[in-house]
Amino acid sequence: MGMEYAPNNMHQMIRGYADIGLTMPTEYAKLYTYQMFRALGYMHALGLCHRDIKPRNLLVYPNWGVLKLCDFGSAKNLNDGRPNALYICSRHYRAPELLFGTRNYTVAVDIWSAGCVYAELILGRILYPGKTVAEQRNLVTRQLPKELIEIAPPDVVELVISTLSLKASLRPSAFESCAYRCYDQLRYGDILIPNDQPLPPLFNFNHTEVKAAGILIKELLPRQLL
Rank of each mutant, 00 (worst) to 15 (best):
Glu4Asp: 07
Pro7Phe: 09
Met10Asn: 04
Gln12Ile: 12
Gly21Ile: 13
Leu22Val: 14
Thr26Phe: 08
Ala29Ser: 10
Tyr32Trp: 14
Met43Glu: 06
His44Gly: 04
Leu46Lys: 09
Leu48Asp: 07
Asp52His: 09
Ile53Val: 10
Arg56Gly: 08
Arg56Asn: 14
Leu59Ile: 01
Val66Phe: 03
Val66His: 07
Asp71Ser: 06
Asn77Pro: 07
Gly81Gln: 06
Arg82Asp: 15
Cys89Ala: 05
Arg91Asp: 05
Arg91Leu: 09
Ala95Glu: 01
Glu97Pro: 09
Leu98Val: 04
Gly101Asn: 03
Asn104Met: 11
Tyr105Gly: 02
Val107Leu: 01
Ala108Ile: 02
Ala108Pro: 02
Ser113Gly: 02
Ala114Leu: 12
Cys116Phe: 00
Val117Ala: 12
Tyr118His: 08
Tyr118Asn: 02
Leu121Thr: 14
Ile122Met: 08
Ile122Leu: 07
Gly130Pro: 13
Ala134Asn: 12
Leu144Asn: 03
Lys146Gly: 11
Ala152Ile: 03
Pro153Ala: 03
Val156Thr: 13
Leu159His: 10
Pro172Asn: 00
Ala174Trp: 00
Phe175Lys: 05
Phe175Arg: 04
Ser177Asp: 08
Ala179Ile: 06
Tyr183Met: 05
Asp184Glu: 14
Tyr188Asp: 06
Tyr188Val: 04
Asp190Ala: 11
Ile191Pro: 07
Leu199His: 08
Pro201Glu: 05
Asn204Ala: 12
Asn206Asp: 12
His207Gln: 15
Thr208Pro: 00
Ala212His: 06
Ala213Met: 13
Ile215Arg: 13
Ile217Asp: 06
Ile217Asn: 05
Glu219Arg: 11
Gln224Ala: 15
